[in-house]
């Protein structure tokens, strides 16, 4: 019987590979539905979490700020300096030097910072959450919580999501400020692409409050989504220590794909019909 199976698996017929594909697709759809259901459940229970476990929410928020804040802000700063270096050689040759400030308010603030922010949140916060919750699940601590009459979704997932909801906007606003400052350091101090006055003129000419609101909404959705996906993969980890590692890797994959998808949707929704630029208006 097993020999039969192995012979067949060597040369799969069309019907078999179709069956495999259908099974894989069914599994993917089921997983996605589970993911959405879990995230919805943990979002719905956030008000109750604030009432029952406020200290846990703020403890998680503190962990996010202290543990992940510096890394996120530092990498956004590196991104800005890197754009300053690349932008110098792009803008300098044709003599567009004075527009260097627009790099930070157009190219970066309209999506790149949000996407990079999402990557780092997914890597630093998301994978950490999966590792933590997954090992709790493997060590049957989640079952112990349930036995004690504590709702694990509420206590573990919703607290982290609530902490993310509190922290992510402020973290992103800080990151944006640091991006502008690092851009100043890169473009004005290091590369000498543009003067300080020219930098700030074009930096603030090409953005208004709508841009900031869009950027904040975008980053908020991306960051909270990464944390929610991570709580799902942590809560469904199974299969020993190896399972935790696999769940961590899988959450990273799903987050990367979702961040890119969300970026396309947001770019089309917010900037597709209206460039929101002080040109021709």
């Amino acid at each position: 019987m097993s020999q039969d199976a192995s012979e067949r698996s060597d040369t799969p017929t069309t019907r078999e590979s179709l069956d495999d594909a259908r099974k894989a697709m069914e599994k993917a759809v089921t997983n996605a539905a589970d993911l959405v259901r879990y995230c919805g459940r943990s979002l719905v229970q956030i008000p109750m979490t604030f009432r029952l476990y406020p200290s846990e929410v703020f403890a998680q928020a503190g962990i996010l700020i202290r543990g992940s804040g510096p890394v996120i802000v530092a990498l956004v700063a590196v991104l800005a300096v890197q754009s300053a270096v690349g932008g110098h050689y792009i803008f300098d040759t044709p003599g567009l030097n004075s527009y260097a400030g627009a790099i930070y308010s157009v190219a970066l603030m309209r999506g790149l910072v949000q996407v990079v922010f999402g990557w780092i949140v997914a890597a630093k916060i998301g994978c950490g959450v999966v590792a933590e919750l997954g090992s709790m699940k493997i060590n049957e601590e989640v079952d112990a919580l349930e036995v004690m009459g504590i709702n694990p979704v509420q206590y573990l997932a919703s607290t982290r999501a609530a902490a993310g909801i509190i922290v992510v906007p402020f973290l992103f606003a800080t990151g944006l400020l640091v991006e502008f400052l690092a851009g100043y350091v890169g473009s004005v101090v290091f590369m000498k692409t543009v003067s300080a006055g020219g930098f700030f003129t074009y930096l603030y000419l090409f953005q208004n409050f709508a841009d900031f609101a869009i950027a904040l909404t975008w980053a908020f959705c991306t960051g909270v989504m990464c944390i929610l996906v991570a709580t799902y993969y942590g809560a469904t980890a199974s299969g020993g220590p190896v399972g935790v590692g696999q769940a961590t890797a899988r959450s990273m994959v799903v987050n990367l794909v979702l961040i890119s998808t969300l970026a396309v949707v947001f770019a089309q929704v917010f900037y597709g019909g209206n460039a929101n630029a002080p040109i021709g208006n």
Binding site: A123, K124, C127, V130, A131, G134, I138, G245, A247, T248
Partner: peptide, 14 residues
């Protein structure tokens, strides 16, 4: 153990 492997993946990516 289990948290060690999860953390290793986390740190590797970061």
């Amino acid at each position: 153990g289990s948290i060690g492997l999860g953390r290793a993946v986390n740190q590797a990516v970061v």
